[in-house]
Every structure is written in C-alpha cells, then in structure tokens.
Design a protein around this nucleic acid. Structure first.
Lengths: 346, 346
DNA sequence: TTTATTTACGTAAACGTTTACATTTTAAAT
DNA sequence: ATTTAAAATGTAAACGTTTACGTAAATAAA
C-alpha cells in the first residue's frame, strides 16, 4: 500500500466519478439508479468505475435531497429479550430484501426515553417507525407529533390504543385463557397471575384471559390473585414472588413476561418448592432455553419472527405504494402453547 | 387539534425559526449550539422558540455539512446473544452520556455480510465503528478500507489480528485454562472442548487455554479432544455433540460459546446422561438463565457490560481529543468463573 | 476625541446528492 | 432533405445545515 492509495481513497464522490468518466454528475447519479434515461453502455461504464473506485453513495446527502431514507426505526424497550430480538430479526429479514435499513432504538422501558427517542425521529432520519411501547407510557402526544410530520407508525406486540395506527399483535386474551385452562386441567386449584406494572394493553388482555378462564371454570374464592412486578429482572421481583408464594400458597403461576421466569424459578428454589409437584408454572416467552430449564418450562410461544416480518411488510408496502390505508391494518397472529414438564401431571 | 396545528407542524427548519425571530439562520444555528458568539438574551429567545415549535435539527444536513455524525456503529454477529446484548447496552450507556447515538448492525456471522455492512459505513454515516468480527472472516481488506477513509475502528471480544487497531477483550486463555483446571479438580479425566468453526482469535485462545491446562495436569491419552460446531443453535450441533458423547465418552465438556449450552444439554438429555454425575459441563456465557437450568450451569462469565463501556469510552475519547494513539490501546478484562451444579462433585 | 478591541450578528459558500428543465444527439417519419 | 419524435446527456437549483469571513455597534484604551 503506497501513499497514493491512502490519499485516493479519502472521499470519493459523484463529482470525482463524473470527472473520471467525462460525464455530468446528473448522468452519473441516474446511471447508478438504473434510470431509463441513460444508455446501457454509459450505465456499464459508470458502474464499473464506481466499483473500481469503491464509491459508495452518501446517504445523508441523498436523503436530504430526496426526502427518502430507506431506513425504518425499530423502537423496543430492550434488546436483551428474546422476543424483541426475534421480532427485530424478522423485520430485518424483509427490510433487507426490500433494500431498507433498520435503526434500532431502545427506550429501556421508560416513557421519558421513549418521548426523546421518538422526538429525535421526527427529523427525517427514517421513513417509518415500528414500535413496541414502554410499559409506563401514559400519553400518546409524541406519537401524534410523529404522525403529523408525515412519518407512519406501526405498533407491534405492545400498542397504545389511544392512537389510531396499524398494529401487529398476538392473541393475548386467548392464549392466556388457554394457558390458564391448561393449568386448571392439570389439577391447579389456585392459580396466581404474575405480571408487570404499567398500562400496556397486551398485559391487560392477558390478565383478562386469565380472569375469564377462572370464571368459566368456577374458580375457588380468593381468585383471581394478581401481583405486579417491575418490568425488569430484579431481586425485588424475587422477594415479591417469594412473599406471595408464602402468603397465598398458589399451586399454579401464569407469568406474562419472559424475564419473570428466572425470578419465579428462583423464588421457588428459595422456598424449596418442587415444580411441578408443588406448583406448576407457565410463561409467555420465546426463549430457546425454556426446554432445558429445571424443569423444562411450559411456554406460550409467540410468533415473534413472523410478527416482525408482517410488520415490516405492511409498513414497506405502505411506503412503496401509498394506496393501502395503513391505519386500518390490524393483524393478530396466534401463539402456541408448548407443554413441558413445569405443568405436567404429577 | 385544528388544521393549523397540522400544517404548522409539517417541517419546521432553521429558516422558519429565523424568520419567526427576525434573526439570521447563522445566529439561530449558533444559538442552538450555545456558541459564545451569541448573547445570552438571544440564546434564550431562540431556544424558547425552538421548543415551542418542536424544532429538531436535521441530522443529515448537519452532518453533511460538518462531517460529524455523533453516531457510532456497533457491528455484531447477532443480537440474539446475551453477551452481545450486554455489550451493546454498555456501549449505549456511555454513548448516551456523551451525546452520541448508536447504529446497531448485524452480520449474522457471515463474512460476506460483514463486508457489505462495513462498506456501507464508509459513506460517512458514522464517526467510528465498534465491531466483533464474524467467525469466518478471513481477510481484513474491508477494515483497512474503513481506516483509509479516516473512520476509526475498535474490536471488542472478537478481533481480527492482522489489523492494527484498538481492542477490548477478555482473558480468554486464562479463563479457559482455569475452567479446565476446575473440571479436572472436580474429578474429570476426559474433557472435550466443544467450540465453533472459524478463525476468530478468541476461540483459538480459549482452545489454547484448554490445551495448556491439560498439559500442565498430565492429561490422559486421547486428549485434547476438540469438536467444531456451527456458530448458531442447530439440530446438527445437537447430533454432532451426541455422536461425540457416544464415541469419545468424555466426562467433562468445556463449551466456548453461549448457544452451545442448549445443544449440549439437549444432547445429554437424549442420551440419558446425568449432569454432573455422568458428565460435567462449563460454558462461556453471560445468560441470566444459567442459574435456573437443569442443573444450574457453571459459567465463565465475561464482563460484557463493562467491555461495552470501556470500548465506547476509548473510541469517544479518541474522537473528542485526537491525542490518544487509538491503535495502540489494547484492554483485557478479567472474566469470572461462576461455580454451579453442572460441575459439582458427586 | 480617535483608535483599537470586543461583542453580536449577517452574508454567502459550502457539504454531496437529486431532479425539473433545457439542450444536444440520434433515429424515425415525412 | 426536412421535420418530428425519442433518447441521452447537461445545467443549475434545491435539500437544511455549518462556518469562514465580513461588518456594525458597543466598549475599552490611547
């Protein structure tokens, strides 16, 4: 590698390509975009030179001028959650095919951070936003601001119902209902729901499914029994669950969110409770490790990857041909109840 | 909300702010950046108006002009891996403080995708790149191209040794050595290493640690015994491990990467092998679920979050004050061996 | 008072694209 | 050969910032 290499490589733009080829910048730009206005021969020349000189378009200049970024924002509470990870992979898989990029943003499940993340996105960095809202989001002004700037929004999994926007969700009510029935069928008399604080609709839907299953099965007094944890893995959660196990003595637990499985298992361990003999547990999660836990965990497995795919397809469809009425699109994908040892008959 | 709101909100830029305030665009720009060239009174007026009108700077225009993006790229094989997730969170935590954003890119552990991701980043989208290389990356031209464009690069965890660049890693040799010794101490006579294909230096370092521990402890013939899996969770891996368990009959396994734990546990289950009675297992992982597996898994826990923090601090330090010689920075952080039931004496 | 310095602002040229519009070249129609 | 249409290219103005440079007003130094 000589000094020439070094200096040549520093910033090669269309102007240089144009000079190299004795063409105007306009023609170079069009050739690179396969415009019908430029001859095949010129296209070939331009592309050859671009490849040879390692030219890569400056997306900032490009989108500044064209108002198109070919980028989708994905806003999630956390990426340390197998569900969101799989959704992201689903989104990325279709985005990639359609020549879109993704910008992953985390809110750390905080309403305030969500506002600032969304506000940042109003500046034209992205063409659209796919979001799973924070559990304590209590107002949708930031979403409306985004919509008013003409940036379409689509909710996946956790939506915010006051906002009129497209959504892709799972059948939370039904799957919680079915899981509760399964626990009842396998002999549970006293099932508690362990869920998280915050007003996210999917959690209330899961709660409703749990309640309805109890009603339909003539549950004993003292039920429903619901406790609310923090929406992150924590020692407080373990203590809270342990106290509940001691006081209420449930023989079944339905956990509404992935990270609660570790806390619930730990609490049972601390008390010497045997799963499933003393207490049966089912959890909403997509973690692959569920099958090798002690004991293997019965899960309500959501179609996370597919959810991401559907969400991205919908949004990109809208961005490409504006003819679909995005706001009216509401998809519901079915979850699967995967039976494992943690709820088996003893 | 009336029609006025709707239309007012659509695109508010510095020009409009300037007109609203009877100032020049330059003064508005400077006021928003707290330049010493503008009076406190004017700054206050500008900021008030900006807040009132929901102005947010167009980062594309800004970085196009200033050649500063205040964005770091994080390039990882996968985000569905607790280690990378935690590193990302570490990076983000310090980036946030220093007013940097992060752009997360996945290579899906493919050399080809890595090239295209890195090439995309040469166009000025980011100020620097933090990367953990794909396991089959066999050439560093794409990294050199990036460096030649003046974009600094820093490797975390998985580096590419032919490239002269900063790195933040863990003590792979020592921790593999210690884990192997621990297995030997607890009675293992025949320990196999389960690792992944590809020429990433951290895997060879872990392999060397394993080898050296065997040598130092006068291991039996037939050792070292090493098998190479695909670098993703797969049924092939399970089959491969099962075959190995049948043929070689090891009484100890050292797993070099997180996702192998599920495969190894599953393979043992299939063969009816009891952990730790029949076989003891230790694994490099940062997963929280390790403690509730069946049985709880002994882990070499890497300081993932801290690694992210250190990496980001180093890179941002360099970007802010160019006086440190980035390429000469090589940090090694110690891992911790967490003893659990999967390797306990029986 | 005059001159020098400091403070606060304005002007205008970039940054690297895209694209409406104009122009030239080539081919087709008369 | 002339006119008309189509194809290929060029010109120049945007997109929304930042910043070098210039200038006027206010203050300090002479």
């Amino acid at each position: 590698m000589n000094m020439n290499d070094e200096s040549n490589d520093r910033k090669i733009n269309m102007k240089m390509l144009a000079k190299e080829l004795n063409l105007s910048i306009a023609t170079v730009s069009r050739a690179l975009k396969d415009s019908y206005e430029v001859s095949d021969q010129t296209k070939a020349r331009v592309k050859e030179a671009a490849a040879r000189l390692n030219y890569v378009v400056n997306t900032q200049a490009s989108s500044l001028r064209s108002h198109k970024t070919y980028t989708l924002a994905i806003v999630v509470p956390e990426i340390g959650d197998s569900f969101f990870t799989q959704v992201i992979n689903g989104i990325e898989s279709v985005a990639d095919k359609k020549k879109y990029r993704v910008l992953i943003c985390m809110t750390h499940d905080s309403y305030e951070r969500e506002i600032s993340v969304i506000n940042e996105l109003t500046n034209g960095r992205v063409d659209g936003v796919l979001i799973s809202v924070a559990s304590n989001t209590r107002n949708g002004d930031h979403f409306n601001a985004l919509k008013r700037k003409g940036i379409p929004i689509l909710f996946f999994d956790r939506d915010f119902k006051e906002i009129n926007a497209a959504s892709v969700k799972t059948d939370d009510f039904e799957s919680a209902y079915n899981a509760t029935c399964h626990l009842l069928d396998n002999g549970c008399k006293k099932i508690s729901l362990i869920t998280v604080r915050g007003g996210v609709s999917i959690f209330s839907a899961r709660e409703e499914g749990y309640r309805q299953a109890l009603i339909d099965n003539h549950s004993k007094p003292g039920l429903p029994d619901i406790i609310h944890c923090a929406n992150e893995h924590s020692d407080d959660n373990i203590a809270m669950i342990r106290d509940h196990l001691l006081k209420a003595r449930p023989d079944g637990l339905l956990l509404t969110v992935e990270h609660l499985s570790t806390d619930a298992y730990t609490a049972c361990q601390l008390l010497g409770l045997k799963i499933p003999a003393d207490i049966k547990i089912a959890c909403f999660t997509t973690q692959l490790t569920a099958g090798i836990l002690n004991p293997a965990l019965t899960t309500i497995q959501q179609p996370a990857f597919e959810m991401g795919q559907k969400a991205a397809e919908l949004l990109i469809e809208y961005l490409t041909y504006k003819y679909i009425q995005l706001e009216n699109q509401h998809l519901v994908l079915p979850s699967r109840l995967i039976l494992r040892d943690s709820t088996s008959l003893t």
